[in-house]
Design a protein around this nucleic acid. Sequence first.
DNA 1: ATCATTTGACCTTA
DNA 2: TAAGGTCAAATGAT
Length: 280
Amino acid sequence: MTLDAPAAVVLELMTMGQQSAAHLGDLLRAASPASPQQDLAAEILNCCGRVIDALRAAAAASGHKRKAVEYQETAAAAAGSPPPGPPPPKRRPRGAGAIKEVTSGTTVDGFIWRKYGQKDINGHKHPRLYYRCAHKNQGCSATRRVQRTQDQPAAYEIAYYGEHTCGGAGQPPQGRGGAAPPTVVDFGSNSVDATCRGSPPASMSQGGWSSASSEVGLEFDAHEWWHGTEAVEEQRMGGATAGCYASDPVEFGCRGWESVLDDPLDLGGLQILQDFATFQ
DNA sequence: ATCATTTGACCTTA
DNA sequence: TAAGGTCAAATGAT
C-alpha cells in the first residue's frame, strides 16, 4: 500500500481522532457506567475507524497506477539537471506529463480558466477541452486539459500543465465577475463559515501545488466559489457541482462521511481522497 | 463596445 | 500521416 503525503496526513489525523474518541469513551465509562455520551463516543470511534479503513483501501487500490507526475519526475531524474539549452517549445510534447491530474465530478477548482480549444479525441466519446489561465496576460502559463471520463459521464479527468505565476484564484479578471471572495481557509475548524464559504484553496491561490497538510482539507472546498463563466459552463456541461457537506452539521456527521466515502462520484468524497493518494 | 466562447484550420509530434 | 494541441476569426453574451 502506498499513501502519499496528504492522504497520509488525513490518515494520521483520523487516527488521532480515533484515539481521542477512545480516550473520551474511557473517561465517560469511568464517570458513569452507562450513558448516552458513551454511545456518542463509540459512534465517533466507529466513524473514524471506517474512514481509516476506506483511506487505506483507496490507497491500496490506486497504488498500482503510474501517474503522469511520477513519470515526469522519473524522467527528470533520469535526465539529470536541466542543461542550458534552447527555449522551451511553444507546444508541449504530446502526452507530456501533467504536473497534476485529478478525476473530479466538477471542473471548478478555484482558478479562473479561459477555454481556448476543443478537440474530439480518438476512442473518447466526449471532446477534450483545453483551458489556459485567465491571467495569461500577466504571464501565467498554467493550462489544463479537461476530459469527461468514459465510464462516468459526470466525472472529469483534469490534467494541469504549468505553474500558476499569477496568484490565480481569487482574482477574477477585471471588467467581469464580482469581487473575489475571501480566501480564508481554516482546516482546523469544522464551522460552516470556515469550510463552506467557497474560498479557493490557499495553496492554490499562492500558485503551484503545495503538499502542505492543509490542502488535504482544502480540496474538499474546491467548489463553485465565485459565479464566473466557469460556473456557467459547469452548468452547461452538466457537471455536478460540489456538495458542501460541512454546510450541514448533521450531514457532516458519521452518516455524512460514510455517504461521502461510499460514492465515488460524490464530490469531496472518496474520489478526491483517491486523487490525493494517487496524484500528489 | 468589450470580452468570452466556439470552431475550423493550422502546426507539431509520434 | 494521423492525431493531439493551439491559434485566431467568427459569433454570442453582457
